[in-house]
Structures are given as structure tokens and as C-alpha cells.
Design a protein around this nucleic acid. Structure first.
Lengths: 190, 190
DNA sequence: CGGTCTCTTGACGGAGTTCAAAGCTAGTGG
DNA sequence: CCACTAGCTTTGAACTCCGTCAAGAGACCG
């Protein structure tokens, strides 16, 4: 839980008595590699905070291939926000990429928490604002760069992360096939 | 201003004395077609609420072609959130697509407003949450559909909007060339 | 060590781009 | 209110990036 409290304190001031109140709304959860947290079509009931490990958001495209759209590493939040917010069927699945430790909060607990503690309302407002900013830039990269450039950007910006995940997930995240990724790697070497 | 108040009331309850306080933080602004509100490289100082008309977010790609990433119609919010939130150089431009009426609020006014009126903290939290949900779905569509499918989805989901904007903006938004859009339209007719 | 999952290689094809040129439309000023 | 022009849209040909398919080589796990 300390990781979460520390993260919240980057955005708002918490008094010591706020902490148990916040913690009481979350549950700690350990998941194994490839464990599914949410299945496309079900309601995404939780908002996930990654304490350790890595999870991903993905969907199945028309050809039956998994398309990853987001990763969440340590100290990132993730959910299918449409499903979470409206409590309707999810259009994504969520799965652990590695053995991970998560803190989870369900929709009603989150609403109760922000209602009872305005600091948390502010915290989530800021988290969402940041996520929004990141999405806008993501879309800019997707439109502004060729797949080859996306690959080069990614490996230079997140060299450590590239080590952690299999190639096929990276290809899926960048929006191309493992075969083409392999070709790019070869090109780079020579 | 009524449009904004009405919009806020869809998310939170406002008392009558809240209204002048809220209104005092905004400025009304009329812009002509193609008027630039923010130039890529400058700080995006405002958050824009569209009362009437349409504005867009775009950037210049390496080939010198404008790439539109978002439109905002009546009752939508728009900004370069990274620039707005951190008050650093923007990586997008914002321009009016048509003659429009906007309500604008600068970063410090918005922070003051949400600090003085917790309802507005909640309102913006919800606005950002919705925007987030929309972004996730947007990325899903971008990855999951071919450009031709994106085009068909768009014209069936937003038939009225297609009438309002020039073809080349639609092409830019969907991520392909006006030439290819022209080809798709021809294909559709026959 | 055997089997399954992951990564690599290469040939081929097709969706979408680029370039250039001509036709069309709409806004502007006279 | 018309005429002119700049900007938008259409066409078509050549080209390119990247997907598909199929087959082989590693790598990892029981």
C-alpha cells in the first residue's frame, strides 16, 4: 500500500488519518503471469493500480489476433474506463504480463472514497488529466510516425521495458506483425 | 453561458448561487472560420468549451501536412492537455473549423475554480474520465479497423458532421490522404 | 529430451501513398 | 450579382510499406 500512498502524495497532501480511510477502500491482489483480470464482454468492475509487475489492456480483432493498446507498469493506473464508469460490458480484456501485485478498487468504493475525501477527488481528477494528456500524445505518435519510427522511438524511450516483454506483445502494441518487427530488428543489427 | 451551466448540471447539482461564481471564471470568445487559437510550440493557456461551432486539434507532420487528431463540437471540451496542465510548449495547434462561440478558462482560473467549488472538481474529474474512456475506444478503432472501415464507421455514426466539414479535414482525421478518401467515395457510389 | 511457444526468413500481394494534372466550388471583390 | 481565382476534389499511374502465408530455427518448460 505504501506505493499507492506515496503516489497520491505526489499530487495532494494527505494527513496521517486519511491513510487508513484510503487503504480501507482497496484490496491487494497477487496475480500470476498471463492471469486474466477482465474478459472482453464482461463488466470491468475495478480500477487497477500496479504495485509491482505489469498488466495490459487488449482486444481481439476481426482476424482473431490480440491487439494490445496499453501497458501499465509500476505506479500506473489501468482500467477499461468506459466499462468501469458506466458498469457496462467491456470492449477490452485485461491480463497480467508478468507476476504482479495490484491494488484494486471497485466502482462504488471509488465513488464513495472521492465523495468522503475531497483530496481523493482531486487526486483522481489529476490522474485522469494526465492520462488524457498522454492519450493525446499517443494519438499524435500513431499518426505522425511510420511503424518503423514508432519502433525506434519506443526502444529508445523505454529500453528497460523492451527487455521485460516478449517481442510479439511489443509488435502488437505498436500495431504491426511479429514478422515485421523481426525484419526491423535485423535491419537495425546490420 | 447557459449551455455550459446546463452541461455541468448533467454531472453535478448546482445551486443558484454557484452559477455567478462559475461564470466569473470564464470568458466568452467569438472566432471566425480558420482562426487560430493556439499555435504549435506556444503554451496552450486555455481550456475551451464549445458553445457553438467546431474547433479542431492538429499538428504538422514531417512532410508538412496538417494531421487532425480531434474535433470538438457543441458542448465538448478541448485543449492540448499536456501543455495546458504543465504550462509548457504545445505539441498541437488549435483552430476553428467554422465560425464558433467558445467559453474559455485559463489554467489558474480553472485551478482556483475547482479549489473553491468542490462540485467543479467533481465535474472536471468526470469530464476527464469520459474523455479517457473515449480515447481508449478511439485507439481501439484505429488499431482494429482498416482505413476504409474507419471511413464507413465515421459516416454512419456522424452523418451530420460529415456535411459540416470539408473532405480533406475528414481524411486528415481518419489518417489518410484526400486522394484515397475520394477513391472510397467513388467506390461507395457505384 | 520432446513438445510447444516464440522468433526469423523470404516470396508474394494488396491497401494506401505519392505525384501530377485537370475539373469543380465557393468565397471575394468589383 | 457576376466573374475570377484560390482552394478543394477527382482521376489515374507508379510505387512502397507492410501484411500474409508457409516453413524453419531457437528457446523454454515440464
Amino acid at each position: 500500500m505504501e506505493a499507492l500512498i506515496h503516489h497520491i502524495r505526489k499530487f495532494v497532501d494527505l494527513s496521517d488519518q486519511d491513510i487508513p480511510l484510503i487503504e480501507s477502500h482497496f484490496q491487494r491482489m497477487e496475480v500470476t503471469k498471463k492471469q486474466t483480470l477482465v474478459q472482453e464482454g464482461q463488466v470491468c468492475r475495478h480500477h487497477y493500480f500496479v504495485t509491482r509487475g505489469c498488466i495490459r489492456l487488449f482486444f481481439m480483432n476481426e482476424k482473431g489476433v490480440e491487439q494490445t493498446t496499453q501497458f501499465a507498469l509500476e505506479h500506473w493506473w489501468l482500467s477499461d474506463y468506459m466499462s468501469f464508469f458506466t458498469q457496462t460490458a467491456s470492449s477490452f480484456s485485461i491480463q497480467a504480463v508478468e507476476k504482479s501485485v495490484l491494488l484494486v478498487i471497485d466502482f462504488h468504493s471509488q465513488e464513495k472514497l472521492v465523495a468522503s475525501l475531497p483530496k481523493m477527488e482531486k487526486y483522481f481528477r489529476m490522474i485522469y488529466q494526465k492520462a488524457n494528456a498522454a492519450s493525446q500524445l499517443r494519438v499524435k505518435y500513431l499518426f505522425g510516425f511510420s511503424r518503423e519510427e514508432l519502433y525506434h522511438n519506443f526502444i529508445t524511450n523505454y529500453p528497460g521495458f523492451v527487455q521485460r516483454i516478449p517481442q510479439y506483445l511489443l509488435a502488437s502494441f505498436l500495431g504491426f506483425t511479429p514478422e515485421y518487427l523481426s525484419e526491423l530488428r535485423k535491419k537495425k543489427r546490420s
